[in-house]
């Protein structure tokens, strides 16, 4: 690929069999295609949210809805604070995942184990935050089919807001949960020297792709639900 003079003959060789034209292993290509289809699923959810919001005159103000914080006194309102902590938890766990993949490249088992444990802790912390937030909203009367929050302009709201919120964050949370399970399996496989025996840590890379995708989706969910 780097030589331009023999580009055509390289091209022929690239697709001539005997080697991967994408220069990655099969499982990783398939992980990419799975993530692409998953992106369309989340995209469909978020776009339908946008369509419904654009077709409605009023919409609840997220700063008036998501304003609670664990252990905060009753009257204290802290919009955006809790969700920003959740966002940073996910970003940091994504960074530790990259470090685990990097350690895997260097066949550094200890580094993989340490960073996978940190990533799993990050995932569990995120899920705990989300469980707290759902529980809190539920006790405020919000659930699928029930919306206690008024629109930002003081008019009556529909249940669209809570339906979309719980469906989309729930779907994302389920992805986080499966990511944590996958990461735990990867950790066990690392600890039992499965990857040392194979001679490579490609599985960590594939789990890493999934985990980064979960972080990527949260970037969109966080922005669209809490900021816009």
């Amino acid at each position: 690929m780097s030589t331009t003079t023999t580009a055509s003959s390289n091209e022929a060789k690239l697709w001539g069999g005997g080697k991967s034209p994408f220069n990655v292993e099969y499982g990783k290509v398939m992980m990419w295609y799975f993530l692409m289809s998953d992106a369309f699923t989340f995209g469909a959810f978020l776009i339908s949210y946008g369509t419904v919001r654009f077709s409605t005159n009023g919409w609840p103000d997220p700063n008036a809805v998501f304003r609670s914080f664990p252990f905060a006194p009753e009257g204290v309102h802290a919009p955006l604070v809790f969700v920003s902590i959740m966002t940073f938890i996910l970003i940091i766990s994504s960074v530790t995942m990259v470090l685990a993949v990097h350690a895997g490249h260097n066949m550094d088992k200890k580094g993989v184990v340490r960073n996978m444990i940190l990533t799993i802790i990050g995932g569990i912390a995120f899920l705990s935050c989300q469980a707290w937030e759902w529980n809190h909203l539920f006790h405020e009367g919000a659930w699928w089919g029930a919306n206690p929050f008024l629109n930002a302009d003081g008019t009556a709201s529909t249940t669209n807001f809570t339906n979309f919120f719980f469906t989309i964050t729930g779907f994302h949370g389920f992805h986080v949960f499966s990511g944590v399970v996958i990461n735990i399996i990867m950790l066990i496989m690392t600890l039992t020297n499965q990857f040392e025996k194979r001679g490579h840590y490609n599985m960590i890379e594939k789990a890493g792709l999934y985990w980064h995708f979960v972080d990527l989706v949260w970037v969109f969910v966080f922005t669209i639900f809490y900021l816009l």
């Binding site: 690929m1 034209p21 994408f22 220069n23 990655v24 290509v29 990419w32 994504s94 960074v95 995942m97 990259v98 890493g208 792709l209 980064h212 995708f213 972080d215 990527l216 970037v219």
Partner: peptide
């Protein structure tokens, strides 16, 4: 940035 660097897509083959 997440896709290009964390998911490493920027460093993959152009076809991919």
């Amino acid at each position: 940035y997440i896709v290009a660097y964390f998911m490493h897509l920027k460093h993959e083959v152009k076809n991919l």
